[in-house]
């Protein structure tokens, strides 16, 4: 099974789990809390973690099979359980290339990737103030790349449009500390989540796969109405 097929299988399993939890968590109409389930419409997120490119030889040339990556993104919630958004990230590695004509590693190469993704996320959010919120998402992916090769002209470009998927778990910090956003006073941040996310995306450029797998830890800040948080208390 290819990495992408494995990832899709994991994604489907996670989606099924998420949907199952939703069904199991559904309550009779009479038991539904009087509080309305709402969430801030807009949110921004910033995360950092590892990016493992889908290149078998990456470690040979860059000394590690992973590179440190970060990303920033935003999302809009059509429903508390349905979000769409976009993000841009960065991964960078210093290493060597192949000495053409000799076929051995050599030369200095700085490889920088700026992945950009647009996504739709389904969140397992069932009640106001829910502590753990699992989610799955799918979307489109592309990447801007830059290869600086010592003594040669820099190479830059953009990869083809590909696909991406993600699974994660958000922890609602306002629930752990109701004043999490209190430090902002009457500021715009109403909800704060910390999240752990597994992500995979695939995008090619002239047959080379630039995507890979990411594990990211991040913070997500919700802006605007605070219905879920205030009613949960």
């Amino acid at each position: 099974m290819s990495p992408i097929a494995r990832s899709l299988a994991a994604l489907v399993a996670a989606a099924a789990l998420c949907a199952g939890v939703r069904i199991a968590g559904a309550q009779p109409a009479s038991d539904v809390p009087t509080a309305t389930l709402v969430a801030p419409r807009w949110s921004v997120a910033v995360d950092v973690g590892d990016f493992e490119p889908d290149l078998d030889s990456f470690e040979l040339f860059y000394g590690d099979d992973k590179m440190t990556a970060w990303a920033v993104g935003f999302a809009y919630a059509f429903r508390p359980w349905l979000e769409a958004g976009g993000e841009i990230g960065r991964g960078h590695a210093d290493g060597v290339g192949i000495l053409t004509g000799q076929g051995v590693p050599g030369g200095q190469v700085d490889y920088t990737l700026w992945p950009a993704q647009a996504f739709v996320k389904v969140r397992g959010l069932f009640r106001p103030g829910q502590l753990f919120v699992p989610y799955v998402g799918v979307g489109l992916a592309t990447a801007y790349y830059e290869e600086r090769i010592d003594g040669q002209q820099k190479r830059t470009g953009t990869s083809e449009l590909g696909a991406g998927a993600r699974v994660g778990l958000e922890v609602y910090l306002n629930r752990l500390d109701a004043d999490t956003h209190g430090g902002y006073g009457d500021g715009p941040v109403k909800q704060t989540y910390v999240y752990l996310e597994w992500r995979r995306f695939s995008t090619e450029q002239t047959g080379a796969e630039l995507g890979g797998e990411q594990w990211l830890l991040g913070l997500k800040f919700g802006f605007g109405r605070d219905g879920a948080a205030s009613r949960a208390r």
Partner: peptide
């Protein structure tokens, strides 16, 4: 040493 160009990995084109 035998001078020659370095091919980066992945070998991506410069779209310029």
């Amino acid at each position: 040493a035998i001078p020659g160009p370095t091919t980066p990995v992945p070998n991506l084109p410069d779209e310029g």
